[in-house]
Measured scan of single mutants.
Amino acid sequence: QIGDLVNIDLDLEIVQSLQHGHGGWTDGMFETLTTTGTVCGIDEDHDIVVQYPSGNRWTFNPAVL
Rank of each mutant, 00 (worst) to 15 (best):
Q1S: 14
Q1C: 13
Q1M: 15
Q1F: 15
Q1L: 11
Q1G: 13
I2L: 11
I2Y: 07
I2R: 09
G3P: 08
G3E: 01
G3S: 03
G3N: 04
D4H: 13
D4Q: 10
D4A: 13
D4R: 11
D4T: 07
D4C: 12
V6W: 04
V6L: 02
V6G: 08
V6D: 04
V6Y: 04
V6S: 01
V6H: 06
V6M: 08
V6T: 04
N7E: 10
N7G: 05
N7S: 14
I8Q: 01
I8L: 09
I8R: 02
I8E: 02
D9Y: 07
D9H: 06
D9S: 13
D9P: 07
D9R: 10
L10V: 06
L10M: 14
L10S: 11
L10N: 11
L10T: 09
D11M: 07
D11T: 09
D11E: 14
D11W: 01
D11K: 08
L12W: 10
L12N: 14
L12H: 08
L12G: 06
L12Q: 10
E13T: 13
E13P: 12
E13G: 12
E13N: 12
E13H: 12
I14W: 08
I14L: 13
V15F: 11
V15S: 03
V15W: 00
V15A: 07
V15M: 09
V15D: 06
Q16K: 13
Q16W: 10
Q16P: 05
Q16E: 11
Q16V: 09
S17F: 11
S17Q: 14
S17E: 14
S17M: 14
S17D: 13
S17G: 14
L18C: 08
L18Q: 07
L18E: 07
L18K: 09
L18V: 06
L18T: 02
L18F: 11
Q19D: 02
Q19T: 00
Q19C: 04
Q19E: 04
Q19W: 00
H20Y: 10
H20Q: 14
H20R: 14
H20D: 05
H20K: 15
G21V: 03
G21N: 06
G21L: 08
G21E: 08
G21W: 00
G21Q: 13
G21T: 01
H22R: 04
G23Q: 00
G23Y: 05
G23C: 04
G23N: 02
G23W: 04
G24F: 02
G24K: 01
G24T: 00
G24D: 08
G24W: 05
G24L: 00
G24H: 12
W25K: 06
W25A: 10
W25E: 08
W25R: 06
W25V: 05
W25M: 03
W25P: 08
T26R: 07
T26Q: 14
T26E: 12
T26H: 11
T26N: 14
D27F: 00
D27T: 12
D27P: 11
D27H: 11
D27N: 10
D27S: 09
D27K: 10
D27E: 14
D27L: 06
D27W: 08
G28M: 08
G28H: 10
G28K: 13
G28Q: 14
G28R: 12
G28D: 14
G28V: 09
M29R: 07
M29T: 04
M29D: 05
M29S: 01
M29L: 00
M29Q: 08
M29K: 05
F30M: 12
F30N: 15
F30D: 13
F30Q: 14
F30G: 12
F30E: 15
F30C: 15
F30L: 15
F30T: 09
E31V: 00
E31Y: 06
E31R: 04
E31Q: 00
E31M: 01
E31D: 11
E31S: 04
T32R: 02
T32N: 01
T32Y: 06
T32M: 03
T32D: 10
L33R: 06
L33Y: 12
L33E: 01
L33F: 11
L33G: 03
L33K: 03
L33W: 06
T34G: 13
T34M: 11
T34D: 14
T34V: 13
T35D: 11
T35N: 04
T35V: 06
T35P: 00
T36H: 00
T36W: 07
T36N: 09
T36S: 14
T36M: 08
T36K: 09
G37F: 01
G37Y: 09
G37S: 12
G37K: 02
G37C: 05
G37H: 06
G37E: 01
G37V: 01
T38Q: 09
T38G: 03
T38W: 11
T38S: 08
T38V: 15
V39W: 00
V39Q: 07
V39S: 03
V39L: 02
V39A: 01
V39D: 00
C40G: 07
C40I: 13
C40M: 14
C40R: 08
G41S: 13
G41K: 12
G41R: 13
G41W: 12
G41M: 10
G41A: 15
I42C: 09
I42H: 10
I42V: 12
I42R: 09
I42T: 10
I42Y: 09
D43I: 00
D43A: 09
D43W: 03
D43S: 15
D43E: 08
D43G: 08
D43H: 11
D43P: 06
E44Y: 11
E44P: 14
D45A: 10
D45Q: 13
D45S: 14
D45G: 12
D45P: 04
H46V: 03
H46W: 12
H46D: 15
H46E: 14
D47N: 15
I48Q: 04
I48L: 11
I48D: 01
I48R: 09
I48T: 09
I48G: 01
V49D: 07
V49F: 07
V49P: 00
V49K: 05
V49T: 09
V49L: 10
V49N: 03
V49E: 09
V50S: 02
V50P: 00
V50K: 00
V50F: 04
V50L: 01
Q51I: 11
Q51S: 11
Q51R: 12
Q51K: 11
Q51M: 07
Q51E: 15
Q51V: 10
Y52P: 08
Y52I: 00
Y52M: 00
Y52Q: 00
P53Q: 05
P53V: 05
P53N: 08
P53G: 04
P53E: 10
P53F: 01
P53K: 07
S54Q: 03
S54E: 02
S54V: 01
S54W: 01
G55D: 02
G55M: 03
G55L: 01
G55W: 02
G55S: 02
G55V: 04
N56A: 07
N56R: 08
N56T: 07
N56F: 03
N56G: 03
N56M: 05
N56S: 08
R57C: 09
R57N: 09
R57V: 11
W58L: 01
W58S: 06
W58H: 10
W58E: 01
W58F: 08
W58T: 04
W58I: 15
T59K: 15
T59W: 08
T59H: 11
T59A: 08
F60E: 01
F60K: 02
F60A: 02
F60L: 14
N61A: 04
N61T: 04
N61W: 06
N61L: 04
N61E: 00
N61V: 00
N61I: 00
N61Y: 09
N61F: 01
P62R: 06
P62A: 06
P62Q: 03
P62S: 03
P62V: 02
P62L: 00
A63I: 08
A63H: 10
A63Y: 06
A63T: 11
A63D: 14
A63E: 15
V64I: 11
V64W: 00
V64N: 03
V64Y: 04
V64P: 00
V64E: 04
L65R: 00
